[in-house]
Simulated assay, not measured.
Amino acid sequence: MDTADLPGGGRLHLLRRGQDFEILFGEEQLMGSWDSESEEALATIVCERLGTRAGHLLIGGLGMGFTLAAALKAAPAEASITVAELVPKVVTWAKGPLAHLFGESLNDPRVTLTIRDVSDVIEDAQAAFDAILLDVDNGPDGLIHLANERLYCNWGLRAARDALRPGGILAVWSAYPDRVFHDRLQNAGFAVEEIRMVADDDDDHHFIWLATKPA
């Protein structure tokens, strides 16, 4: 249906097959409209853990809006949610061919959408967020944007820890396990929990790391 150029090179493709939509990076599928459970869980589980302390959430990556919609549903009514999206065309898709997936999420007064690298938002923040939810690659490596490597390296994780309030949670979505990243989160000073979820074909799994900053 459309393409979007990425900063630094590469291209996203928006495809439609019948009633289903998917976003590809080259030939690599980033997300599909038919399988949203783990993207929703990224927000739902974090909000359940934080309860009334989920006052300000940062979502890295707009995607198809599943994490945002789940956060709006699960977070306290007075919470605020900042969404950082790197690619302007993704926002265009959200308001155009994917509008039926987003519903009224982007019009919710609790939501602030910024066209900006989420790494920069994190680095500029000091104890500003109760949770940071990252789903900008297929896992903890810079797949679609090489600069995303700084989100997952040692100093990037320390920046995320500093951007969180005490007891805050960094949650990272992945399509694959990564023991090295799990250990890196621990070395950055987080208490780490790994959640494994069955994907849509029952033969694959998605992973969510919950990294909690000490209170």
Rank of each mutant, 00 (worst) to 15 (best):
I144T: 15
E123Q: 10
A127E: 15
S119W: 11
P88A: 01
R116M: 13
G65V: 00
A71C: 10
E123D: 11
G60K: 07
S80K: 11
T67H: 05
L62Y: 12
V91R: 05
D124Q: 15
G55W: 01
L68G: 01
P76M: 04
E104Y: 02
A84V: 07
H56D: 07
D135M: 12
L86S: 11
G63A: 03
M64E: 04
D135C: 03
A74S: 15
L106S: 06
E149V: 03
W93R: 08
I115N: 13
V91L: 14
V90N: 05
I115K: 12
P76A: 04
D124F: 02
G142S: 12
A128G: 02
D108R: 04
V90H: 09
R53M: 04
G55F: 00
A127T: 10
L143Q: 14
A74M: 07
V87T: 13
D135N: 14
I115Q: 14
D130Y: 04
A54Y: 03
L68D: 00
F129P: 05
T52W: 02
D124P: 00
L113W: 10
L62H: 08
R53G: 01
L58W: 06
L146V: 14
I122K: 03
L146F: 10
V118C: 11
F102A: 00
I132V: 15
N138R: 10
H145L: 13
L106G: 06
L143H: 14
G139Q: 13
E85F: 12
G142L: 09
G103N: 00
A69R: 15
I81T: 12
P140V: 13
A75G: 09
A71E: 04
L72N: 05
S80I: 00
L68N: 01
E123C: 08
A128N: 00
W93V: 13
G55T: 13
I81M: 03
R110D: 10
I132F: 11
N148H: 15
V91Q: 06
S119I: 09
A54S: 11
T67Q: 08
